[in-house]
Design a protein around this nucleic acid. Structure first.
Lengths: 192, 192
DNA sequence: CATTCACACTAGCGCTTGCTTGGTTACGAT
DNA sequence: ATCGTAACCAAGCAAGCGCTAGTGTGAATG
């Protein structure tokens, strides 16, 4: 039992775990399934991670960190208007959710499976991501682009986006970018 | 093993199961936990249900049926305008989700845990509920109250509503009715 | 008064789970 | 040539899992 925290091998294994967690859910994924998919035996798994819980923790950290990074990049590259910024956020969110199809989904859907210690360790990262969303939404509200309470709008928008995981078909013709555009159009369709 | 399908006792047990499934999730809920909460021994459980899967099936059927019934009642009682009907649906949805706090939540969040046979048995009921939503949304679109693609809008709206389970605080000051109103206001806020 | 029935109990089987142990291999640095 | 270390394996343990078998009730039914 000789857990290393930042080996490149560990990153690799984390990616595999993320995929399985999305496919089966955390509880139904056994360490034997994880090991098999990783091409090692189940005992070897505990050389890289202290326990199963730590694998979940690593996946969620990866997923949230990734979403935060990509969101910031998107904001840096887009036009500096409230609408463009809102669109950039929604698009980035959907792409990490639907295209990667792994770590970010786990971060959203398996959060409850974290124990108290892991939750405490990750909550700051999650808060940072949500704060970014809220600032973008606050700007859009101030500019009169959309309406409502800052927190409520954030939660409704994120809810609509997060739920796409349940019905989105990657083989379908709609791209994440298109979905983001449609959602914003729905909220900003002002009278004629 | 003498499973009865429509006993009143079974209804009672189903209610208890729903609460536990919401609290812990289906996978983490053991038959021993269920039995204890029901005030019987784990072996006795299988007099009422063939297996654990059948308990989930009963809960989800109950939750969806209930949501459908209440939605229809709400529609029958409200004004016959697209906006009032939309509001009635959203309110009914949130109330079965946040006030009951059990069977309907399980229906939404544990659907994936159903085996093929159960899913096939329940899919028609679920389709009926979603069809009702889509007809109300189609009317609102036709009346120009909201904008977008019928299916996309349905999914975004239901996503926003379903996600409330994750953050709603029943001890807070906002009622389901208020949430429903705010969501619709967000989508129908036409410019000045 | 005998039988049936719904409902509950005790006891435990067969299996899977997360995790541990003690030891082996591959390989770059010394 | 030797050593250190990261990576892996075979084997298995203790606990917990869903579920079954067989039995005991007290109330309703004939």
């Amino acid at each position: 039992m000789n857990v290393v925290n930042d080996s490149p091998r560990r990153k690799e294994l984390t990616r595999v775990a993320a995929q399985l967690f999305v496919q089966e859910g955390f509880d139904r994924t056994t360490v034997r399934m994880l090991a098999q998919e990783m091409g090692i035996k189940s005992g070897s798994l505990f050389h890289h991670f202290r326990d199963k819980q730590e694998i979940l923790c690593a996946v969620i950290e990866e997923g949230t960190q990734n979403a935060l990074t990509i969101a910031k990049e998107s904001l840096a590259q887009c036009e500096n208007t409230p609408e463009a910024r809102l669109h950039a956020m929604a698009r980035a969110h959907l792409e990490t959710l639907l295209t990667d199809r792994n770590a970010h989904v786990v971060a959203l859907y398996e959060w409850r499976r974290l124990d108290e210690a892991s939750r405490e360790h990750l909550i700051h990262l999650r808060d940072a991501y949500e704060a970014l969303w809220q600032s973008v939404i606050a700007d859009a509200l101030e500019a009169g682009l959309i309406r409502g309470d800052k927190f409520l709008v954030s939660r409704f928008v994120l809810g609509a986006l997060n739920w796409t995981v349940r019905w989105y078909d990657p083989a379908g013709q709609r791209s994440p970018e298109e979905l983001a555009r449609e959602l914003i159009a729905m909220m900003t369709a002002h009278g004629h």
